[in-house]
């Protein structure tokens, strides 16, 4: 991390308060036209001594199809760190409106196992504010260490897009990337996602973003129906890759079309081994089996 020392928060921020605050900020900005500026906050936030709650962990593991072991799944750590990341995006000096931001992609580097019994220090900051043909994007980075230790065990980078927000001094990319044509392969799996998928993941992740909760709350934010959490989908794919990934791995996912609930999602998960037979990476692609439109794709690879 570059820049100033992070602000140490006394408690884990409350996500519901952060969402309320974000809504209030959005309203204030609309009414007063105040502007947060065009640069990212100079410092990040840190919460120390964070402990996972084991009942919550078990519920998360069952929901995404992981075995209920003592090891925190990479997606669970993302959920654990999410309030800290949100608190950064909730700062008054954060230049983009939190509500309505779109999760474009996510990268996690897991460097070792973390057990639920271990107290963790979680640090998050924003970086890499840059243009996008549809608005402005930013990376929110989170790091997780065992309390008091310096070794980073988990690092997540979430790229968000503030649609339609163009900040002065930040250029749009010169040309939009050439549209890639997607032809669906034979699926290896077919997920049936019920209408309550968003609520179920909200209950285990704490992410009560209204766009995931119900048709009504999603419509209030301009969605025609509620959509599945991206990190829920990615966490299920990660679980499906299975034990072959070991303790240290890189996990990428890029989100494209949202998954409107309820949904049938087709997946292709395939592994690529080296000539010696060792696992190199597992790639996954998910699409709508009816329209053929891609929802997300990514891979899990050896570090």
């Amino acid at each position: 991390m570059t820049g100033a020392q992070p602000v140490i928060l006394g408690d884990m921020p409350s996500l519901s308060k952060l969402y309320v605050n974000a809504a209030a900020t959005a309203a204030r900005r609309r009414v007063l036209g105040t502007d947060a500026g065009i640069s990212l906050p100079p410092c990040g936030h840190e919460v120390r001594g964070v402990l996972a709650e084991v009942g919550n962990l078990t519920a998360f593991q069952h929901l995404v199809g992981e075995t209920a072991s003592d090891v925190l799944p990479a997606g669970f750590i993302h959920a654990l760190a999410f309030p800290v990341a949100m608190s950064v995006m909730n700062r008054d000096d954060f230049p983009l409106p939190l509500l309505g931001m779109v999760h474009l992609k996510n990268t996690v580097e897991q460097h070792g196992t973390i057990l639920f019994t271990e107290a963790l220090d979680i640090t998050s900051w924003a970086e890499n504010l840059r243009g996008h043909r549809a608005g402005t994007q930013v990376d929110i980075v989170a790091q997780v260490r065992r309390t008091g230790e310096s070794e980073v065990l988990w690092k997540g980078t979430s790229t968000y897009l503030a649609k339609g927000v163009f900040l002065p001094g930040i250029d749009k990319p010169s040309a939009p990337p050439a549209p890639t044509t997607f032809s669906a392969p034979d699926p290896t799996a077919l997920w049936q996602l019920g209408v309550d998928t968003g609520r179920a993941y909200a209950a285990v992740s704490g992410d009560f973003n209204p766009i995931h909760l119900s048709v009504l709350s999603a419509r209030a934010l301009g969605m025609r129906r509620s959509i599945a959490h991206g990190m829920y989908l990615a966490s299920r794919a990660l679980a499906d890759v299975g034990a072959v990934k070991g303790d240290s791995f890189r996990w990428d996912v890029a989100f494209e079309g949202p998954v409107f609930l309820p949904a049938r999602v087709a997946l292709d998960i395939s592994s690529v081994d080296s000539l010696s037979g060792a696992w190199r990476h597992s790639d996954y692609t998910a699409w709508n089996p009816r329209s053929g439109r891609r929802h997300f794709s990514g891979s899990v690879s050896a570090l």
Partner: peptide, 17 residues
Amino acid sequence: PRTGLSMGEHQALTTAQ
């Protein structure tokens, strides 16, 4: 359980393959 595909759907893929 791990794929959500029915046995018939799985076989349909193999049959086509």
